[in-house]
Design a protein around this nucleic acid. Structure first.
Lengths: 182, 182
DNA sequence: TGGCTCATGTAATCTGTTACATGATTCT
DNA sequence: AGAATCATGTAACAGATTACATGAGCCA
């Protein structure tokens, strides 16, 4: 994808909350940001390197429990660069659901197969929901740090869309079962 | 992105409904499928070429109103290939919202700027909604072709999530205005 | 006549994934 | 002892966008 590179900003954003290792960043993306962003090691580590070259982060080699790790900290320059990006209007919000695609072409394969895809889609989000709900609840009580309040708003988004998806799946299932053209 | 190439299937899917030109395909993606899929000419035309080489589509050079166009039709082989893909489980549903990212890092820039992003997000989907609602209504009445019924299900998806997004935006705005930490 | 839409295509470039490589520590 | 997790990284490759190039017909 020849889109604007956003990995820089994602990493700076995460480091704006606290110093982290590349491994930590990956974990954060796989959990907290899972619903709206993701990335692989193959893009995280090289980006950390280039950010260091641009003096937007500093590296600190440490050893914790005999384990080597490289802790990255955002610099003033990095924070400035992040803020500049945050001020700019959003360029692209993208939703790419293969499930929707397969549904759209459903007439070519019939309702039985299509139902399976819908069921899997539903199950996936039903699986997510408890964790998201737990986060929202936790973040509601925790009226502390500012960053947590913003995290809470994104978690609320996750909760809402999961619930909407599940509702929609139920409707779709009813309709597909009713027609039963297998 | 070194993901599985889905452009092939998208084009075959669209051609499974009716013969089209590359230009038509682009239009369809920009309108009907806009909410869950998109692509540029730079991927459409080369894909059409490779599909022809694999005998999954046939080209028909025509002239309509003095305008040259190449009409592509799916072959039996192409249809088979499409069906095989449709049967396979979904590999990836991806949502990538820069807006959510900027919201998540909102503490770094404050609620004033963040509110602007939320407002734009809301406006965008408020703008989409009338068209989607019109589609849904039209497709509800039109109880004809099978393919339309599948299209209708995806339009219902669009309607639901747009409404959910707008609701969520209203909540977020209230919370951000209440705290007012600019 | 000028601007918009119709219509097809290519080359350069970007961005990121996948798969591989390595090795230590912690848990069971 | 073995599996899982912690931890960092690279090279090959894929997939797609952007920007450019070209030209005809339609509408005002």
């Amino acid at each position: 994808m020849a889109n604007e590179k956003k990995m820089d900003q994602v990493i700076l954003g995460l480091l704006s909350h606290e110093p982290m290792t590349g491994y930590d960043i990956k974990k954060r993306l796989d959990t907290t940001l899972r619903l709206f962003w993701n990335a692989s090691y193959g893009s995280i580590y090289p980006t950390l390197n280039s950010l260091e070259n641009e003096h937007k982060v500093t590296r600190l080699q440490t050893t914790y429990n005999g384990r080597d790790k490289i802790l990255y900290t955002i610099t003033g320059e990095g924070r400035q660069s992040l803020q500049q990006w945050l001020e700019k209007p959003v360029v692209k919000d993208e939703l790419r659901y293969e499930t929707l695609l397969k549904l759209f072409f459903g007439s070519e394969i019939g309702s039985e197969v299509t139902l399976k895809h819908i069921q899997e889609f539903e199950d996936k989000f039903k699986g997510e929901l408890p964790f998201i709900k737990a986060s929202v609840k936790q973040l509601n009580e925790l009226k502390g740090e500012n960053a947590h309040q913003y995290y809470r708003l994104t978690a609320m988004f996750g909760e809402k869309i999961c619930e909407t998806y599940i509702e929609w799946c139920e409707e779709v299932k009813k309709i597909l079962i009713a027609k039963g053209d297998c």
